[in-house]
Simulated scan of single mutants.
Amino acid sequence: MDSKYILLGLCCLYYLNVFSQAEITVEELKAHIVFLSSDENLGRAPGGHPNRQVVRYIKNEFKALGLRSFKRGFKQKFVAQIRVDKGMPEKENKTCNVIGFVEGNDPVLKKEVILLGAHYDHLGLGGPSSKSDQRGVVYHGADDNASGTSALLEIAEYIMAQKDQLKRSVVFVAFGAEEQGLLGSRYFVEHPPVRLTQIKLMINMDMVGRMNADKHVYMNGAGTFPKGVEFMKSLGESLGVSPIVHAGSVGGSDHVSFYKKNISVLGMHTGAHPQYHTPEDTIEFINFEGQKLVCEYIAQAILRKATSDDAMYFIYQD
């Protein structure tokens, strides 16, 4: 065969490979949030049919992406103790974390894990301290935290498209019952499917759908892994993001459960807003182009750490 045709064929294969890579898209982010924040899911409180429906959705997405499950499957079941009203006894609600992973390719480094997480639950009907006339009001939680859950699914798709490059393994976790006191992440670190010492970095996304005009992305805990502050600043700036990076100030979402176990963490968000923990946290307020940019930022952070052999270890921060 003529060498020029061989070269042409190789070039075609190269370009097909490049353009067939999964992209993070506004359309898919929006589709996930439309489902997660819909009235039919009744605010995604732990327990009951809506919770099972959301879990099934996330599990099916993980399976469709080709993520692997651990020995006990994609669902890590636990019981959440929830106080419905002041002065009333706690109620036991069955819920779960949803977990999938992709194994790295390096024979040694594949034993190390980068973990990406986001909680999928919200406040249900009536919210945290509602009056009786609010009992039927759905707390949609579009930003808190359908935005983080949709980002989890989109970033997982992107990472799976690059799986041949990975040295370290990447675990994806949708946590249940965060709003009731970080219950899902607390259960995970007490019953981990991998040894906690294998988890070299936990990145948590909680409210990543409201990027402002200055393109700020806020993060806590960047000083808990080597050169983390410099890494996140330079990476963000290269992608057109304005990162607000804190070395410590670890914060109050699911990454705290990991930090308490001496695991390096990044808590990622795009800031608070007046609709926080109200029924008005709805999809109309989501900045989807901004969310896409946040996803690309986090995806690149994972990819660079999962494809490198940089030493990763915990650094305590006050």
Rank of each mutant, 00 (worst) to 15 (best):
H191I: 09
Q275V: 07
I33A: 02
L183Q: 14
V217A: 01
N97H: 06
S238G: 09
M207R: 12
C295L: 07
E103K: 15
Q81A: 14
E157P: 05
N105A: 00
E154W: 01
Q291P: 13
F35W: 03
S264M: 01
F285T: 15
I159G: 04
D39K: 14
D309W: 02
L303V: 09
K86H: 10
K71W: 00
M211W: 03
L201M: 07
N17K: 03
S3N: 13
D309A: 09
V113L: 01
P279H: 04
V241I: 15
L153V: 10
S69G: 10
V250T: 12
H269A: 09
K200T: 07
R195D: 15
V189M: 02
V55N: 01
L67V: 08
I298N: 00
V217C: 04
G209C: 08
A151E: 09
I199Y: 00
G104E: 04
A80N: 07
Q291T: 10
V138N: 08
D281H: 01
K131C: 09
N145E: 07
G223D: 07
K111V: 05
Q198C: 11
Y259V: 11
H122F: 11
V241P: 10
Y5R: 14
F288T: 13
R168E: 03
L182N: 02
V171W: 01
Y187R: 10
S238H: 07
H140W: 05
K4F: 12
T307V: 06
F258C: 06
L16E: 04
M205K: 06
K163P: 11
R68F: 05
K111C: 04
P243C: 09
E296W: 00
E237C: 00
L183G: 04
E230W: 00
K163W: 00
R68S: 15
L152E: 05
H140Q: 08
K305N: 10
N17T: 12
F258K: 00
E179F: 03
S234I: 07
N262E: 13
D309R: 10
D254P: 13
D106P: 11
M160V: 12
G48V: 11
M160C: 14
A142C: 06
C11H: 00
G104N: 06
R304E: 13
A299Y: 02
I315G: 01
L16M: 10
H49C: 01
I155G: 04
F175D: 08
F288K: 12
G248E: 05
P128R: 13
L239C: 11
F285N: 15
F70H: 11
N145S: 14
N204K: 09
E28W: 00
V108I: 15
Q180Y: 11
H246W: 05
L109D: 04
M211C: 08
K110P: 12
G240C: 06
V189G: 02
Q134C: 13
G236H: 03
G236D: 05
F101L: 04
